[in-house]
Design a protein around this nucleic acid. Structure first.
Lengths: 210, 210
DNA sequence: CATCAATTGACAGTAACTCTCAAAAGGGAA
DNA sequence: TTCCCTTTTGAGAGTTACTGTCAATTGATG
């Protein structure tokens, strides 16, 4: 699940003394930029906050901001949960139904993500709802996850990699998740996202009958 | 279905003599800009074609281009099929299953769209595949259609307008359609989109079991 | 400490918009 | 046609998100 994570926890969280000063500084800079951005977005709004201002607030040059985050949207939502997600999916027994595999890996990844970062979730929800560019980026990110999902599923069911049925299946599931995500965002991130996802999966289990 | 249509046919196609000179000129200008853009995109690519160049090729000022199309992406895909789509949906018998209603209205709208414009479809497919910004716009547009769909469905089933199940249902269906659309784009718009959509709807009819 | 590689900041440039204002052109009445 | 009013257009200036280059700085290493 791509959109969930903004402050990557694995590499950023605690500056393990293993790393050299150089690496530690990089992590700090990244954090500083992100923190400054979140604060300013909250205070003034996303569009009203130029990157230059974020740079100034984080005490780095504008060039540096763009070196760390290729686009302004990426400051809000860059995550590293695609790899864990893929691993979780591939760890599932191959004879399990695709839907069941997805249910387990998505929920596990989501729980993992929530453990590591609850703070900015509400703000992220607000931005997701208010800023089209953020939404767009989130969707694109989800679609990439979808590619991975489809790939695994095609391998597992022995279908060609451009099989329409698999693509539709994955598209539908992700579409459902995205709807749940937006529902969550519409409620300002106050509801339990994991619960919403479970409810979403139930809709699918019922064969998508309203 | 939003993404399908770029050259709106209803208002643009034939300059009905009903309209005054003013209106006719507007339609011409709109067409001129779009045609110029499509030609240049085809020749040089989307990113390599600045709006100024499109303006020059269409013999209007850059300001005018932005007056007609709020963003560069909109030159590629602005459509007017949301209204017909909604009408088609609302014309369906209220006791019909949601999925069946959607099937009919989507296919009807799609057929209608295809009747009126086949020309640029291939180029549109190429752009949809190659340009992230276009894809993003297309998705956003689809999501808007989704809002309408969800609204109608909520009314029909007597649920509150922010019902999660309905949102998920709609999200899933649109996700499936989008997957089919991207499949079509990946094959450069050579396959029959209506056929792909029918196949997609079959996947749903089967209760989304792979 | 000296040297090398990675990181950074300053600067210049591009392109997508946005805003404002004056010129031009259609539409209708006298 | 002529005049007047409204809509449309173009010119120009300004903002902002990027991109690329180059020299200065700074951490790593022997």
């Amino acid at each position: 699940m791509s959109t969930m994570a903004a402050v990557p926890t694995t590499p950023e969280a605690r500056p393990e003394p293993r790393l050299g000063l150089r690496e530690r500084k990089k992590i700090q800079t990244r954090q500083a930029i992100r923190r400054a951005a979140y604060r300013l977005f909250k205070e003034q709004g996303y569009d009203a906050t130029p990157v230059d201002q974020i740079a100034a607030a984080a005490d780095v040059s504008p060039s540096t901001v763009f070196r760390y985050f290729p686009t302004k949207e990426d400051i809000v939502l860059t995550d590293e949960y695609d790899a864990p997600m893929r691993a979780a999916l591939e760890a599932r027994p191959p004879d399990e139904s695709p839907m069941e595999s997805i249910r387990h890996s998505v929920l596990a990844t989501l729980r993992y993500a929530f453990e590591h970062e609850q703070e900015d979730m509400a703000e992220r929800a607000r931005l997701l709802q208010a800023v089209p560019a953020i939404r767009a980026r989130s969707n694109e990110s989800m679609a990439e996850s979808g590619q991975i999902l489809a790939q695994v599923l095609c391998e597992r069911t022995g279908r060609p990699s451009d099989d329409l049925d698999v693509a539709v299946f994955v598209g539908a599931v992700l579409g459902g998740f995205q709807a749940a995500l937006m529902h969550w965002a519409r409620h300002d991130g106050q509801e339990d996202l994991t619960g919403l996802m479970e409810q979403t999966l139930d809709v699918f289990s019922r064969g998508l009958t309203l």
